[in-house]
Amino acid sequence: MSVPREVTRHEDAIPQLADVNVPDELKTWIEQRMAMYPDPKSATIPCLMQAQKLHGWLSPDAVRQVAAVMRVTPAYLVSVASFYDMFELQERGRHTIYMCTNISCMLRGADAVMAELEAAVGVSDGDVSDDGIFLRRFECLGACDIAPMASVDGVYVGPLTVDDAKQLVEDLRAERDVLPAKHLTKRPVAATFWSGGAPAGSGAGEA
C-alpha cells in the first residue's frame, strides 16, 4: 500500500500537509524534484533553495513547508541548511552581494573594495541595509581571473575597483543591470582576452 511515510513518530514533529499552507507551485516543484532521485531525500538542498527563493530566506514557515511536502522533520532541514553558506536562516534583503575576500582577490585589493561596499551600502559584513541589500564577505567564488570580484544576486562581476563598488551599489539601488561591462560571462578565455589588448592588471587595485 502506498501511504505517505514519515520519518518519525512524535505527532507534531513532522508538519502535516493538512496543517501547513504550502504554495501550490512550491509543492509541485518539490514533488517533481524528489522524483528525480532514487532517494527523494536527495532533493533536500534544491528544495530548500527553491523555498528560500520564494520566501527570501528560510523562515521557520518556509522550512515547515518543505518539511511537510518532503515528510521529514524541520530539524533535519535546518541541520542541513545551516551547514551551507548560501542558506539564510535569518531574514535577508532583496539583494545579495557576496564579496570574495579569499587569497586571490585579497592579493588584488579585495579588502579595499569590501570597505567601499560597506560604506556604500551602509552596513558592515553580514548585515542587511534598510533598503534590503545584504552584504557579506565570501570565500573563493571561483573567479580569481577577475579578482577582486563579487557575486551580485548570483551574477559574477569583476575586476572591481573601489569606484566600481560605488557604481555597483548604485546600479543595485536603481534596480538595473549591475556593472554590465564587468560581467564574467561576457569575457573570453584569458589567451583571447589578453591578446585582445586589454591592459594588464586592468582595474586591479594594487595589493
Binding site: L107, D145, A190, A200, G201
Partner: peptide, 12 residues
C-alpha cells in the same frame, strides 16, 4: 588557473 599578482590572470 593563474591568479594573484600576475599581469594576465586566467585559465591557460
Amino acid at each position: 588557473s593563474v591568479s594573484g599578482c600576475v599581469q594576465r590572470p586566467g585559465n591557460y
